[in-house]
């Protein structure tokens, strides 16, 4: 922020562009605001936005926003907030008080944590946190109280452990954990009875909890992605047979026995293999 004046000059001509969108929307009472790729750096370029209480969708993807002011929560009718591909490092706490916010896309930002109390979001259904710098310690304590959540995108983050509290997200249908550092999964995953999409590819997983076999992935709308993990041989062997074969296998007593034995071995987790230092999300705002 200390170097903000530097970016001030190039943004000035674009400011009017964003302002025009606002003015047009005000004029025709359009409740959906498209401010995609407008070079916006700060919400100051969007004067009067927080007074437009009628808006239901705000799309700000592909901008350079570093900071979301708490005043955003004034938009009490906002249902969809899209901040994909910005420079956010943190969010205001007030975001969890937005009564109608259903879809929140924070993908491709530089988030290192979520604000305290974030789990209190009353209506959140789809939360996209893809491509950030989040890990299990970065989530607020009440994160898994998001009972209305039906899709959680956590791909391209730094989770090594998935909290057993994941089992509280009873409505979860889609869980994406692609490209993290997960070494093991909680058995509580087996409690997500509505789950039909599970992305686990490119982690450091060796075993699947046998409880995952409780779930039904046989529907043609189901998808389980398991590749690019250092699976134990029996699992990687079954991988060719498709998800139905794997689910059958992990339900078997043979596998339950193998799982128990492997867990008791307390073997060290597989080492990290991917260098993430060049990830865009690692860049500092100051740079």
């Amino acid at each position: 922020m200390d170097k903000a004046p530097v970016s001030c000059l190039p943004t000035t001509p674009k400011m009017s562009k964003a302002k025009k969108v606002l003015d047009d929307a005000r004029e025709i009472q359009n409740p959906e605001l498209d401010l995609c790729d407008k070079g916006i750096v700060t919400f100051e370029e969007l004067p009067g936005l927080f007074n437009m209480k009628n808006i239901t969708r705000l799309t700000l993807s592909h901008n350079k926003i570093r900071n979301v002011p708490g005043g955003l929560a004034n938009l009490v009718n906002l249902e969809i907030l899209n901040l994909f591909n910005n420079y956010l490092e943190e969010l205001p706490m007030s975001i969890s008080s937005m009564p109608k916010l259903r879809i929140l896309n924070l993908g491709m930002n530089r988030l290192n944590s979520l604000p305290r109390g974030f789990g209190a979001c009353p209506a959140l259904e789809v939360l996209d946190l893809t491509y950030n710098n989040l890990h299990e310690g970065a989530l607020p304590n009440n994160f898994f109280m998001l009972e209305t959540l039906r899709a959680l995108y956590l791909g391209d983050n730094d989770f090594e452990i998935l909290s057993p509290e994941i089992g509280q997200l009873k409505n979860l249908q889609i869980l994406v954990l692609r490209d993290n550092e997960l070494t093991e999964l909680p058995k509580e995953l087996g409690e997500l009875t509505r789950l039909r999409e599970l992305h686990l590819q490119a982690n450091r997983l060796t075993l699947l909890p046998p409880e995952l076999g409780n779930l039904d992935f046989t529907s043609d709308k189901s998808e389980v992605k398991l590749h690019l993990n250092p699976w134990v041989a029996p699992i990687s062997d079954q991988l060719q047979g498709g998800i139905v074969r794997i689910m059958e296998y992990i339900r078997s007593d043979t596998y339950k026995f193998l799982y128990k034995r492997q867990m008791s071995l307390n073997a060290p987790p597989p080492p990290k293999t991917v260098d993430k230092s060049k990830k865009l999300s690692r860049q500092r705002n100051a740079s």
């Binding site: 498209d34 995609c36 790729d37 969708r57 799309t59 993807s61 592909h62 969809i80 899209n82 994909f84 591909n85 896309n105 993908g107 996209d128 893809t130 995108y153 791909g155 889609i174 994406v176 692609r178 999409e197 992305h199 998808e223």
Partner: peptide, 19 residues
């Protein structure tokens, strides 16, 4: 589009990203 919210039609070509 799930990233920019621009409407797509049957003819719009799109890529898959986390389905």
């Amino acid at each position: 589009c799930s990233l920019c919210d621009q409407k797509m039609t049957q003819k719009t070509k799109f890529y898959e990203f986390d389905l």
